[in-house]
Amino acid sequence: MLRFLTDLFKPEAAKPAPSTSETSMNFDLAEVPPFLTGLANNPRFGLPGALVTQIAENLSDLPVDQSSRWQIEGSFDGKPALIEIQAFMDDVDAPDMAFFGSAEVVAEIDRELIAFDQAREG
């Protein structure tokens, strides 16, 4: 009975906002690790340390016309955030990467994508 009462008043862990938005960009395979490293270094995000390695290794084995998807539990501005990343291999070593998350998370990822695209063009 005491445990029931204790559980009743225990605060619930904060849950990440649902995925409501999406942004995407085509990459050359070699560009994916630098982009994800930049994203992981963004101070607004708290992402798992193995993120870049895990995705890069899986992408190198992804056949053309196949896709893979990852759910990343991290944080954004200090709050829990769920980010989903989907890669579709459009061509040999050319994945189309889509990022799903809350509107705020996707807006920040989109800013990173734009900055990355401008840097590779310039």
Rank of each mutant, 00 (worst) to 15 (best):
residue 2 L to N: 15
residue 35 F to V: 07
residue 90 D to H: 09
residue 49 G to V: 12
residue 85 I to P: 02
residue 98 A to N: 11
residue 56 A to Y: 00
residue 50 A to K: 13
residue 94 A to G: 08
residue 18 P to C: 03
residue 10 K to S: 14
residue 56 A to C: 02
residue 74 G to H: 03
residue 95 P to S: 01
residue 2 L to R: 15
residue 10 K to C: 12
residue 47 L to E: 05
residue 70 W to M: 01
residue 15 K to L: 15
residue 47 L to N: 06
residue 77 D to F: 01
residue 113 L to Y: 06
residue 47 L to V: 05
residue 94 A to H: 09
residue 115 A to H: 12
residue 31 E to P: 01
residue 68 S to R: 11
residue 43 P to Y: 08
residue 58 N to Y: 05
residue 109 I to Y: 04
residue 116 F to H: 11
residue 38 G to A: 11
residue 5 L to Y: 13
residue 39 L to T: 06
residue 90 D to Y: 07
residue 79 K to R: 04
residue 70 W to T: 00
residue 77 D to K: 10
residue 71 Q to Y: 10
residue 42 N to D: 15
residue 111 R to G: 06
residue 65 D to N: 12
residue 34 P to Q: 07
residue 39 L to V: 07
residue 104 E to H: 05
residue 83 I to C: 01
residue 75 S to T: 13
residue 15 K to V: 14
residue 18 P to I: 07
residue 111 R to C: 01
residue 47 L to T: 06
residue 95 P to M: 02
residue 2 L to C: 12
residue 32 V to T: 02
residue 46 G to S: 10
residue 27 F to V: 04
residue 23 T to V: 10
residue 102 S to A: 11
residue 79 K to W: 00
residue 76 F to Q: 00
residue 81 A to T: 05
residue 1 M to A: 15
residue 33 P to H: 04
residue 87 A to D: 05
residue 38 G to W: 04
residue 19 S to M: 13
residue 47 L to K: 05
residue 45 F to H: 08
residue 67 S to T: 12
residue 84 E to L: 03
residue 20 T to D: 07
residue 2 L to G: 14
residue 99 F to E: 02
residue 22 E to H: 10
residue 76 F to C: 00
residue 77 D to I: 01
residue 87 A to Q: 06
residue 87 A to W: 01
residue 81 A to K: 05
residue 87 A to C: 03
residue 95 P to G: 00
residue 34 P to H: 09
residue 113 L to V: 05
residue 37 T to F: 08
residue 4 F to V: 15
residue 115 A to E: 12
residue 103 A to T: 15
residue 27 F to W: 03
residue 11 P to I: 13
residue 19 S to P: 07
residue 98 A to F: 10
residue 13 A to K: 15
residue 52 V to P: 06
residue 45 F to Y: 09
residue 30 A to W: 03
residue 45 F to L: 03
residue 7 D to P: 12
